[in-house]
Each structure stands twice: as structure tokens, then as C-alpha cells.
Nucleic acid binder design. Structure first.
Length: 271
DNA sequence: AGAGGTACCTGGCAGC
DNA sequence: TGCTGCCAGGTACCTC
């Protein structure tokens, strides 16, 4: 799925088309996503003005004065700006139609995504309240990582992918950031030095910023709001490159499983 | 508290 | 061709 750069690409793609417009109708073709899509959206949303499209971690927040529509793209979700004349495809589960007939369409083959409504302040929603800091904020830095790692024994890659530690870093960018920082993904989080965590925090920021600049990574089906793929996959240094030469030292890139997820690294460049 | 595994779902691919 | 098993960008929830 969409990790932070892909969600941010979606946000930037949809925002200019829908901000300031008023919801006219909601069509729910498939309510069985990660959690049931609430029926009440069909009566609650029409007539509400969308003030802004924001992002918290991998959640998109469509804010109105009366509450916030929370969208999550799961592993395979996509948002598309289109029109009601465009017939829905197989996995087009929910449509949001605005007063000028602009249509925001959620497609999600694997149905791990979510569409929820929060009438309370959205940062207090149970899914958002316990999230870690944004990786591109000053709150995320080497000192913070060292403090959160404590004496924990879990692999540093798993720490980085825990949204309660830091949001937005998924399986691709965890491998890429650890490569850039020169740290083995298997190292116990509690045994990593401040110096290394300072490097790691900077690497995470750099990798995410570069990926956002390229419109995200498209491995199979991620596209932006206009249906175009991202281009960061061309810049991946280790992810998906098992047995291919390391771009720094030519040693073959290795693949192992960490917490059931494929993890890629160079055993020479990362220590 | 922390670590590890399972579950949700669809579809593509390798291997037999 | 068809079956089986495995894999995929996430993450809440369960058990130990």
C-alpha cells in the first residue's frame, strides 16, 4: 500500500479538486472494508462543506465543521478524481459526489482500507490518539528514537514500522531508510547508539521527502488522483533487489523475513 | 510491557 | 489446464 509518500501524493492530488466544495451524495457499493462503512454517511455528509484535506500518518482526514471523514487506503487502496459518468469498476467501493459533480472514488482490491466518520475532534479518535509523531516533524529525531527504543530487543526495522513509534514508515521505506543510514534491519532496537539513531532519523526524512517528490512508489497498482503511477521505484536502493548488486559496493542484496515482512539489506554497507 | 503470530481480502505467480 | 501454496505497499488484536 500506500505508505506516507503515496498517501501524501493522493492528498495533494485530490485536495485542489474538492476543497471548499459541498458533499452532494455518497454511494456505498461495498460496505465491508476493514470496518463496516457507516450507512449514516449517506445522510450525514450531503450538505456539508469540505473545508480541508489533511493527513495524519497514513490516514486522510477530510474535515468539515461538523466532523471528519477518515480514509485509510490499506494495502491496495486508491483514490481517484472522476465524474459520475464514469462507470465504477470492480473494486470501486465508495463514491463521494460533490455539488459540482466532481466525484472522489475509493478503489481497494483487498478491502483492508477504511472509511469512517468522527464527529468529535479527530485527533482523539481511537485510531489516531495513540499514533507517534510525523516523521517529517521536528518531534521525530535521533534522541526521540533512542528514548523510545529503551532496552527493547525487537529488530530496529520493526520499531520503525510501528505507527505508535512513528507514523508513515512502511515496509518499503523502512528498508530504504536503514540502508541509507547504514544500519542492519535486524539489530535489536535497544542496542543502537544515539549517533546511529541520529543518522536513521535523518535518513527516514530524506527518503520520504524524495519519495514524495517522485509521486510515491508504484510496485503494482498505486496511482495518484489522476490515475498516474509514482516514480520512486526507480530510486529504490535495496527494496525488491534481492541478489542484485548493491548500488554502493556491488555485494548481492540480501532478503530475509522480519516480523513476516520481506526485508532487504546489504551486509557490507549496513552494520 | 513486550514479543510474536493471526486475521482480514483479492489476485498474480510458481510449481506440480 | 487446474490445483495448491505463497506472496503483496497495513495494522488491530490475540496470546504467551
Amino acid at each position: 500500500m500506500p505508505e506516507l509518500p503515496e498517501v501524501e501524493t493522493s492528498r495533494r492530488g485530490i485536495a485542489p479538486h474538492i476543497e471548499g466544495k459541498t458533499f452532494k451524495a455518497v454511494v456505498i457499493r461495498q460496505p465491508r472494508l476493514r470496518w463496516p462503512v457507516p450507512d449514516s454517511l449517506m445522510t450525514t455528509l450531503p450538505g456539508l462543506k469540505l473545508d480541508s484535506v489533511e493527513r495524519r500518518g497514513k490516514y486522510l482526514l477530510l474535515k468539515t465543521r461538523q466532523g471528519t471523514l477518515i480514509l485509510h487506503l490499506g494495502m491496495s487502496g486508491n483514490l481517484r478524481i472522476t465524474t459520475p459518468e464514469q462507470a465504477p469498476g470492480k473494486h470501486d467501493h465508495v463514491d463521494f459526489i460533490f455539488d459540482d459533480n466532481t466525484l472522489l472514488r475509493l478503489n481497494d482490491q483487498r478491502k483492508f482500507g477504511a472509511v469512517l466518520w468522527s464527529s468529535d475532534p479527530v485527533d482523539r479518535h481511537p485510531l489516531l490518539a495513540t499514533l507517534g509523531p510525523e516523521p517529517l516533524s521536528d518531534a521525530f529525531n535521533g534522541d526521540y528514537l533512542l528514548q523510545r527504543a529503551g532496552k527493547r530487543s525487537l529488530p530496529v526495522k520493526s520499531l520503525l514500522m510501528d505507527s505508535h513509534i512513528v507514523v508513515g514508515v512502511g515496509n518499503i521505506y523502512a528498508s530504504e531508510s536503514l540502508f541509507m543510514a547504514g544500519i542492519l534491519p535486524t539489530r535489536p532496537a535497544g542496542e543502537i547508539s544515539l549517533r546511529e539513531y541520529l543518522r536513521l532519523a535523518e535518513a527516514v526524512k530524506t527518503v520520504l521527502r524524495m519519495a514524495i517528490d517522485k509521486g510515491g512508489t508504484t510496485l503494482r497498482d498505486f496511482t495518484d488522483a489522476q490515475g498516474k503511477p509514482g516514480y520512486f521505484q526507480q530510486a529504490l536502493r535495496v527494496y525488491g533487489r534481492v541478489d542484485q548488486p548493491c548500488l554502493t559496493c556491488a555485494e548481492p542484496v540480501q532478503q530475509i523475513k522480519i516480523g513476516q515482512r520481506a526485508s532487504y539489506f546489504c551486509s557490507v554497507c549496513q552494520r
